[in-house]
């Protein structure tokens, strides 16, 4: 017998109440939390399962915005054609998290709130300008995804607060996104580095805005304005792509670990930036 309580509320208010207890942990897909419990890294006093809260499991798309509930799984996102049409990069990023088995469980909110510097969905959400809908015992608030993440495993969340949904603006005409990561194998690895690009091309194929976000190369995913600036005003020719890649490499603050050396990560993030920008541009249907 262990001393951990289990709650499976159907109501958000109940969930945040339970979560405000000392030692309570939110359970979404569980693919990170269960590992942390198994390894002794987490010894929760209570587990609050969020998956029975209907609102958290919805994807809603209206004229102005896309709202993705935090407990929507990777498999559900991938199967959502309307969402994929709006944010192919976000969907492909979420679809890269783990195996088919993990896809059936791992959620977008969990990937975000686990706080891993290498989380696949996070660069794409930041590049998309995502904002978190946060609920807590003291009410609701909104903060950009980029501001939620403070450091590895560290979030700007108070006890009892949860990310209920991530809200993205409806993409403008000519806007598209993409995400790629580098892993040693073809599957089943954690990203050594990942890059998301969200950009808009005008009808002449000239880039009018670009957000480049790099992951796995710093304590948190980094928006690299210099990389985006290198693309704006260009038709994403080789020179512009090279400049964006160089900016991404320069902005990276990687470490060496079992998944790759700092030098390797710095190089790779530049290569990925070039490749991902190209894919995103092609997805706009306006690239020359």
């Amino acid at each position: 017998m262990d001393d951990c309580d289990y709650y499976a509320p159907t109501d958000l208010a109940d969930a945040v109440k339970h979560l405000s207890q000392s030692g309570a942990r939110a359970l979404a897909g569980g693919t990170d939390l269960l590992l942390q419990i198994r390894s002794g890294l987490q010894r929760p006093a209570a587990i609050v399962d969020l998956k029975n809260i209907a609102d958290l499991g919805q994807v809603q798309i209206d004229a102005a915005r896309v709202r993705v509930g935090s407990t929507v799984s990777g498999a559900e996102l991938t199967a959502n054609a309307a969402l994929t049409a709006c944010y192919p990069g976000v969907v492909e990023a979420a679809g890269l998290i783990g195996s088919t088995q993990v896809q059936g469980r791992a959620t977008i909110g969990g990937n975000l709130c686990n706080g891993s510097p290498a989380a696949d969905s996070v660069p794409a959400l930041i590049a998309a300008g995502g904002v978190c809908d946060i609920s807590g015992v003291n009410g609701e608030r909104q903060i950009p995804v980029a501001e939620l993440l403070i450091g590895p495993g560290q979030l700007d969340l108070q006890p009892g607060e949860i990310v209920a949904a991530i809200v993205l603006p409806r993409p403008a005409p000519g806007q598209a996104d993409a995400y790629c990561r580098f892993i040693p194998r073809t599957e089943m690895d954690i990203a050594v580095a990942g890059v998301a690009v969200n950009l808009t091309l005008d009808d002449q194929g000239v880039c009018r805005q670009a957000r480049v976000v790099i992951g796995g190369v710093a304590p948190t995913a980094l928006l690299v304005p210099q990389a985006g600036d290198a693309l704006v005003g260009t038709k994403l020719d080789a020179t512009a792509l090279a400049a964006a890649g160089a900016a991404a490499s320069a902005a990276a603050k990687p470490i060496s670990d079992k998944r790759g050396t700092a030098e390797f990560r710095r190089k790779i993030v530049g290569v990925l930036t070039r490749r991902v920008a190209r894919i995103a541009a092609d997805r706009t249907g306006r690239a020359g």
Binding site: Y6, L27, G29, G30, T31, L34, L35, R38, I47, A75, G98, S99, T100, Q101, V102, G104, R105, M188
Partner: peptide, 23 residues
């Protein structure tokens, strides 16, 4: 026991999962 090998694959409501990664 860490969701990396798939030997514990089961389906839950028709969805493929690793039984080691579910309570």
């Amino acid at each position: 026991g860490t969701g990396d090998c798939g030997a514990c694959s089961v389906t839950v409501d028709g969805r493929l999962v690793c039984a080691c990664l579910m309570l």
